[in-house]
Every structure is written in structure tokens, then in C-alpha cells.
Design a protein around this nucleic acid. Structure first.
Lengths: 166, 166
DNA sequence: CTTACCATGTCAACAAGGCTGACGTAGTTT
DNA sequence: AAACTACGTCAGCCTTGTTGACATGGTAAG
């Protein structure tokens, strides 16, 4: 298929075929994206849901349950099942909020931090390799497209917690 | 933690922080990516697994069950549960292979094609909007990074280097 | 200070979609 | 005839999502 004409001011390149390629790229890449952490978790009593919780608790220490809920986009019952095992196994601890004592602010324990490290090291290794192979120009584009693909609400979440840079 | 020095010939920009943002971008963007088809499927008796099967059958009409299996990366039992309902509802039909009669070559029916259209129209609309907003340069980078992120095996599938399904 | 929300946990039941293991049945190959 | 292959299927289990109802203690507003 000669699908050229993807000139530098680009509307013409948005053929259904091009878009389908993008869709499949997302599908296959996401599989790779989750593969390494999944491999680590397998055999332990944890799964992808635990990984996600651990990730966000690491990223925002002291966040509340309801904040975590909106990041993850699941029900509290679903999250609670996960959190409970993380408490029991001593990977996460909850401290009562200072100003509002109803809140439980979540933190990783040392033990939790160890697992977090292992998981994110694996995931970052793949991301780093991909970034290296693609180059900084491509990375910029990658982030731009992903950002544009998010629901506005989620994009706000994503951007809202950036501490710096663009 | 001043992460500056993200020079233009980039190795230095691969800080953990940068990588973490890439990871979260994947997470949030994938949610958006699946949101629209999910919305269509919800209420019907179908889910994301049906969407994936329909997608690949549409893309490669006449593919065999085992080819579909390797694209999807699930077990035959899992796939079969999905395929069965698609047969029963007349969205997909199987034709006995000409050369090898053990094979069942899968095709969408007209009815199946209608649903495929609805699903992929929704998904492409989002992809198209993101591509437009980001520009062709960014799209190029997007695809490059995603490709680099795939498992080698899956990348081969994606690039279509192994389609001996005739 | 009571009343009404709010943050969180929990019990119960259910569904989708993964998985393993074992077995069956045609059709193909040797 | 035997062995291998493509596919289907039964049965059971797991993770992770859902809804609905209810409990508890903290906060805020009347």
C-alpha cells in the first residue's frame, strides 16, 4: 500500500489503515509494558492491581484512600480487597490524618518499598531501552500523543501531579 | 533532584522521574484507549475480549483459530468461550479449510462487520483526534517508541513478518 | 448538641475473563 | 496402523472488577 503523502503538515496521513496500526501498536506495546512486573508478581499472592496501588502510594506518599480511588478508577470494595492484603503483609501502612482524622494516609513500609523498587526497576528498564532505541525526538512525540489520548479528567490527574517541566 | 540537562542528543534525560512519567502516561492513555469501545460493549453480552477477537478477524479474514490464539496471547479455552458466543449470535462464521480440513477459517458475517465498524469507528475517532492534536512528527515518535516497547515476538506479529496464514 | 453528611471498611453475591488439566474427535502425516 | 495436529469441551479455580446494603467514627452545620 503506497500510503505516502504524510507531509509535514499532516492531515492526509490519517487513513484508517494508519489509525489501525496505531491501535494495534497500543495493544501490543501494552502487553510488553505490563509483562515484566507481571512476571515478578506471579507466584507471589499479588497481581497487577497490587502493583498499581503500590505505584501510586510510592509516588504520592500520604495520599488518602479516596485519592487513590480516583487514580485507579475502581470501586472502594475492589481497592479494599487489595489494600487489606498489603496491610496484612506489612507492605503498606495507614496513618490517621492530622487535620481530618477520618482519613487514612497511605505509606509504603520499608518492605513495601523493596517490592516497589523491584517492580519499577523492571518496568523502567524496558521503558529506558525503548526510549534509548527511539531517541529523544520520538520520546517527545510518544508523550504528546499519549497525553492527547487520555480522557480529559484523567489528563488532569496526570498533569496535575507533575512537579516540573513540560 | 534537579533533573535538568535533558540535552538534545539524549541519554541524560532518562531520569527515573522521566521514566515514571512515561509509565503513567501509558497507564492513563490505555484507559482512554479502551474507554469508547467498552462503552459500546457494555450492556450487550460482550466485553473487551470479544472486541479483540472481532478486531483481528476483521483485520485478517480467514485466519485460523490458532493464529488468532497467538495474536491474542490467551489459552484456547479462554478464546473458545468468546468465539462460541460470537458464533451463536451470528457475528462470526467458520469455514472449513480447503487444504487442511481441520482448520476453521474465521470470517465476520455482515452482522459482525456492523459491530466491528461501530467499535473501530469509536476507537479510531479518539486516535485520530489525538494524532491531529499532536501532529505528524509526534505520531512518528509515538509509533517508534511503542514498537520498541513490544516483546520481540509480538513485534514480529505487529510488523506482519510472519503471516503465513494462507 | 443534635443532625446530617463524609471517609472508610465490610459482608455478600455476582460476572468477566484469565488459567490448568484432562479428554474427545476429526483430519493429516509418516 | 500409529502418531501427531487442529480444535472443541468439561470442570474447576483465581483475580479483579461490579452492585447493594450496612456499620462506625469524625466533621460540620443547624
Amino acid at each position: 500500500m503506497a500510503d505516502n503523502a504524510s507531509g509535514s503538515e499532516g492531515l492526509l496521513f490519517l487513513t484508517d489503515e494508519q489509525l489501525r496500526k496505531g491501535i494495534e501498536a497500543m495493544f501490543f506495546a501494552y502487553r510488553g509494558f505490563t509483562a515484566d512486573p507481571d512476571r515478578i508478581l506471579e507466584g507471589m499472592d499479588y497481581g497487577r492491581a497490587h502493583h498499581r496501588a503500590i505505584h501510586f502510594i510510592h509516588r504520592s506518599p500520604g495520599l488518602t484512600v479516596s485519592s487513590l480511588l480516583t487514580f485507579l478508577g475502581v470501586t472502594k470494595q475492589s481497592l479494599n480487597r487489595v489494600l487489606r492484603t498489603l496491610f496484612e503483609d506489612g507492605l503498606v501502612e495507614a496513618r490517621v490524618g492530622k487535620t481530618d482524622k477520618r482519613e487514612r494516609r497511605l505509606h509504603l513500609t520499608d518492605k513495601g518499598a523493596v517490592l516497589e523498587r523491584a517492580l519499577s526497576d523492571a518496568q523502567r528498564a524496558r521503558m529506558r531501552a525503548a526510549y534509548r532505541a527511539a531517541g529523544p525526538q520520538a520520546v517527545q512525540g510518544f508523550r504528546t500523543v499519549l497525553e492527547a489520548m487520555m480522557d480529559p479528567e484523567l489528563r488532569r490527574q496526570y498533569l496535575g501531579l507533575r512537579e516540573d517541566m513540560a
